[in-house]
Design a binder for these strands. Structure first.
Length: 270
DNA sequence: TAATATACCTGGCGGC
DNA sequence: TGCCGCCAGGTATATT
């Protein structure tokens, strides 16, 4: 399922296909699910930005002019862009120079057009924490918040301490930092380990094009059908019952905050 | 205010 | 072989 590395990979791949293009029409049959998309018609996509797991496409009414609206896209669990229409195409972005199809089997994805910076309808985006791969993801405020936080994994998934961490990368980062997912109030040393682990995991996953998982409908693939490669590096996520790569103890699968959670009971004691 | 629970959604898969 | 029900999980919303 798309988390920050998968969304960043999508951003890099679709940017050359849409930047500078005029939106002729956004076609779909779900006005409730994809509101205000008609506001994009006739506008020019000036660039493709990313904030956490959201893609943000600023829209200007003339080439080189300031953007007055933004097309916001969240891939949900199964969303992605395709060059060809599929059985699960939910929305089509028709441009003056081709088209992109939003493929989303489980319909958890979101697409909407808003005034620039007006994220009132997207509270998670409005309250998004710092980007993990940017300099503003500073250790000090992270450690300060971690010292007061509840269970660390749900805290990470809230997007407030750091942007873009989902279930897979939360499990992987906690495994690397050797912290139990349910631990509360991290020590300064643990916060520093986790801070480093989040950066490492995200950086490696972005470099490998994200994770593609087999089975279920959670398959993430890039717009051209390419698969990511980070799933081959998973140490904990999806490896319940298999030996921990660090100590050999079987990885335990539990449920925490309604989410499947994987950890090593030896390396990540509670 | 914060933490926790639930709904949304649908294809794959295991069990019978 | 076919049917049934569980499972996956990011976000918004409701509840505690």
């Amino acid at each position: 399922m798309p988390e920050l590395p998968e969304v960043e990979t999508t951003r890099r791949k679709i940017a050359p296909l849409v930047t500078g293009r005029t939106v002729l029409e956004i076609e779909h049959f779900s006005p409730d699910k994809y509101p205000d998309t008609e506001l994009a018609h006739g506008r020019i996509i000036s660039e493709v930005q990313r904030r956490g797991k959201y893609l943000i496409l600023p829209l200007a009414d003339q080439a080189g002019g300031p953007a007055d609206y933004e097309l916001i896209v969240h891939l949900g669990m199964t969303g992605g862009f395709r060059l060809e229409e599929t059985q699960h195409t939910r929305l089509t972005l028709r441009l003056n120079d081709g088209a992109l199809h939003f493929h989303d089997p489980r319909r958890f994805g979101k697409v909407r057009v808003v005034r620039v910076g007006d994220y009132a309808a997207l509270p998670t985006l409005a309250a998004m924490g710092p980007e993990p791969l940017e300099d503003d993801f500073a250790l000090e405020p992270f450690a300060e918040a971690a010292a007061k936080a509840g269970a660390v994994k749900p805290w990470l998934l809230s997007q407030k301490p750091v942007a873009g961490v989902g279930n897979i990368y939360a499990d992987e980062a906690l495994w690397r930092a050797q912290i139990h997912p349910a631990q509360t109030r991290l020590s300064a040393e643990q916060a520093a380990q986790l801070h480093t682990a989040i950066r490492e995991v995200m950086e490696e996953a972005v470099n490998l094009g994200g994770s593609s998982l087999g089975g279920g409908t959670g398959n993430y693939r890039q717009h051209d059908g390419d698969w990511g490669g980070f799933q081959l590096q998973h140490a904990a996520y999806g490896r319940g019952g298999q030996p921990c790569p660090r100590c050999g103890t079987p990885i335990e699968k539990t449920v925490l905050g309604q989410r499947g959670t994987h950890h090593c009971p030896q390396c990540q004691p509670s």
